[in-house]
Write a protein that binds this DNA or RNA. Structure first.
Length: 423
RNA sequence: GUGGCUGUAGCUCAAGUGGCAGAGCACCUGACUGUGGAUCAGGAUGUUGUGGGUUCAAGUCCCAUCAGCCACCCCA
């Protein structure tokens, strides 16, 4: 009765074994890329006091998109909408004992009270990776290289996905040069961000609305088309040189229109997108200057990025790069000949587990056809059967499900035969 | 939070202007009482997302609500 099943919470996902296998696979790829560059795994609580986000309480992320509720004692608890404040606290607490630069990564669930859409849910998983305590373009390049390493690792080519890079300081200078006052930068950044969302005429209207002259608009247009603008930024020149040495250059592209919404980015910013622009950003990050000041520590600079689990999965699906994952750990199923031989089957299963092969049993007597069908469906590769004939001859019937071949294997040889079939 | 599209069996979808709710795949049983994917023969399946309303009659029209999707917002 489908209508009687209680609905899951809006914007959450059930992870059936097939989906869980994908999530775990992603997690393993993230781990591999993080560890390849010497990053250590960490995590914080999923529940945090609302006060942790107080410094950002004016921002939409916390004010409107966080799950906040009172606990039984009346304190306001937040389901973490992001990891950065937690990271800031953890760094601040050990600021005097940590070996800087700190290189940490994490993968876990986050919650945001948003309207669910494709690639966006209310409960999602996110990879966070940061280098803290260093302020150099080469550090920025390393983070971009970790991202590129991941993209390469999961089989996405530079022609399919690109990490687009820009620099906030460069943009500030450029805006200065066309006479945009510092207090209007934010509005202009917004304008830049909407470049693709508005029609050219609507875009110009919006530009006029925020007070840009015709000359400034054309200057801005020129700026946004300047693919070599990065050559004017020493930071970006060094960034791209370092990326080259880190074998990430082919995935990187300078893009003057990349701004990133978050206010706390101060230098290099980057985001990965699929080449056809079909999806939202795959990952996003950049350099920030004042990580722990908000939670009471001395300011420390850092650079990092976050990657959600949903968009990358959509991109991998589109390009057919999700591997065929078999969520079934047991490659061996021991069938039950009949009720009298059920415990013989159980003993055999125990023996095979002792060999080191994950093994499932059929936990009740049933027609053999049903049991073989079950073995096939759950993804087992081999079925073992112990009937009266086998017991009399001290053998085991071993059936290879993919070749349909069945052999009678003497018990002493079972281990080596299975090793060949299953490993 | 704003606006729009959609919702029929486990899945993909049918059911002119309201008139008995269907097909393919999947599933179950058997042919095959020591063997899975093929074949054949049978079989089960829905309060048409939910709750109201209009009507002799609602999957179909109206209202509300929930969910998914799209745009905005924001962002992973």
């Amino acid at each position: 009765m489908a209508n009687k099943i209680i609905q899951s919470v809006k914007g959450t996902r059930d992870f059936y074994p097939e989906q869980m296998a994908v999530r775990t696979w992603l997690y393993n790829q993230m781990r591999a890329s993080s560890e390849a560059f010497g990053y250590q795994e960490y995590d914080g609580p999923f529940l945090e006091p609302l006060a942790l986000y107080a410094a950002k309480s004016g921002e939409e992320l916390v004010k409107e998109q966080a799950f906040v509720f009172p606990d039984r004692g009346g304190d306001l608890i937040t389901l973490r909408p992001e990891l950065t404040p937690t990271l800031a606290r953890m760094v601040a607490r050990r600021q005097n004992q940590l070996a800087f630069p700190v290189r940490w990564w994490s993968f876990g669930p986050f919650w945001r009270y948003e309207k669910p859409q494709k690639g966006r849910a209310r409960e999602f998983f996110q990879w966070n990776i940061d280098m803290i305590g260093v302020n150099s373009p080469e550090a920025d390049a390393e983070l971009a290289a970790v991202g590129a390493n991941f993209l390469k690792r999961v089989g996405l080519s530079p022609s399919e996905v690109k990490i687009l890079v820009n620099n906030r300081r460069l943009m500030d200078e450029q805006l200065d040069s066309i006479g945009v006052a510092p207090e209007r930068r934010k509005a202009v950044f917004r304008l830049i961000d909407r470049r693709d969302k508005l029609s050219p005429s609507a875009w110009e209207e919006y530009a006029a609305e925020i007070g840009l002259s015709a000359a400034q608009v054309s200057g801005l247009r020129e700026m946004l088309a300047a693919e070599n603008l990065w050559e004017q930024s020493e930071e970006l020149v060094r960034f791209f040189e370092a990326a080259e040495a880190l074998e990430a250059r082919e995935y990187l592209k300078y893009a003057p229109y990349i701004i990133r919404g978050l206010d706390y980015y101060t230098g290099t910013v980057f985001e990965a997108r699929d080449a056809e622009g079909e999806f939202r950003a795959i990952l996003g990050g950049g350099r920030y200057d004042n990580l722990v000041a908000d939670v009471g520590g001395k300011p420390v600079a850092g650079v990092g990025f976050a990657m959600g689990d949903m968009v990358i999965t959509l991109v991998l699906e589109k390009y057919g790069r999700l591997p065929a994952l078999n969520p079934q750990p047991a490659k061996v199923l021991v069938a039950v000949f009949d009720a009298d031989h059920l415990l013989d089957a159980y003993r055999l299963a125990s023996e095979v587990r002792g060999f080191g092969f994950p093994t499932a049993t059929y936990p009740e007597p049933a027609k053999l056809g049903k049991q073989f069908k079950y073995a096939d469906k759950i993804g087992a590769r081999v079925v073992l059967l112990l009937g009266p004939d086998e017991i009399a001859q001290n053998t085991v019937a071993v059936k290879n499900l993919s070749t349909r071949e069945q052999t009678s294997v003497p018990r002493p040889q079972l281990r080596s035969v299975l090793a060949e079939l299953v490993s």
